[in-house]
């Protein structure tokens, strides 16, 4: 690891990195550095003690409120544990870029969410969890394609999860009458997999992905097309 990133571990554990790019760089680095991840865990256990030392009971009404609230909150399913152990080394490197890209986009997605809009926060979190669900799969594979016309599209796909995360950067801005439509393409032909969001910084998760599928992106009328009507600007295979 570079000294530069190494010294960030303390600031990261203290949530003292306010520059998203810098934080993402560190997180991407963590994904491939076992000793750094271990160090960070120790750091977090240490900073937790700073928190424990200033404990102060909340008003009793909060307890009732929280216990009432959770009845309406669905719990997330577990992700595969021990993924660090089963994850082959090579995968970590390959996927680090994708992970960094997606994590960055996820961060971007959650920034600017209005404080009191609980629902939007929940949606952002749900989207984040959905992305994390794919990224954390032991068999996740990532690939990046350069789009004709500029920009890149990165995918992280997992056969075991049956999903693919699609993130883009620097794609040409389209008029509001057009949209970037996603396709999963195999020998049987293309199937629509939704759109890149207007907020291009947000990654999307497309379901029903199989290892034989390639991901294509075409420019379509804003409402979408049943079949691609233009040549894909990019075509990516994750295998």
């Amino acid at each position: 690891m570079t000294d530069d990133l190494h010294t960030l571990a303390g600031a990261y554990a203290l949530d003292a990195i306010d520059d998203d790019v810098e934080r993402r760089r560190f997180e991407a680095h963590l994904a491939g550095c076992e000793t750094c991840a271990t160090e960070l865990r120790e750091f977090q256990a240490t900073t937790a003690r700073l928190g424990l030392a200033v404990a102060e009971a909340p008003p009793p009404r909060l307890r009732d409120r929280v216990l009432a609230d959770i009845r309406d909150v669905r719990q997330l399913p577990p992700v595969s544990p021990r993924r660090a152990e089963v994850r082959p080394r090579r995968w970590r490197r390959t996927v680090a870029a994708g992970l960094a890209a997606a994590a960055c986009l996820v961060t971007a997605a959650s920034v600017g969410v209005a404080v009191h809009e609980r629902q939007r926060v929940d949606q952002a979190q749900a989207a984040y969890q959905e992305v994390a669900f794919v990224l954390s799969a032991p068999d996740a594979r990532s690939a990046t394609g350069r789009a004709g016309g500029g920009g890149t599209v990165t995918i992280v796909a997992s056969a075991s999860r049956g999903r693919v995360v699609v993130a883009s950067a620097g794609l040409r801005t389209l008029p509001s009458s057009k949209a970037y439509q996603l396709w999963l393409i195999n020998a049987d032909g293309p199937r629509s997999a939704g759109f890149l969001p207007d907020d291009r910084s947000r990654p999307v998760v497309a379901g029903a992905w199989r290892p034989v599928d390639r991901l294509g992106v075409t420019v379509e009328p804003a409402g979408g097309s049943a079949r691609p009507t233009t040549t894909p600007i990019v075509l990516i295979s994750a295998t």
Binding site: G51, L52, V54, A55, E56, A57, P58, L62, R63, V66
Partner: peptide, 8 residues
């Protein structure tokens, strides 16, 4: 955990 969380 409520007291540590709230205190922090």
């Amino acid at each position: 955990v409520a007291a540590p969380v709230h205190g922090l």
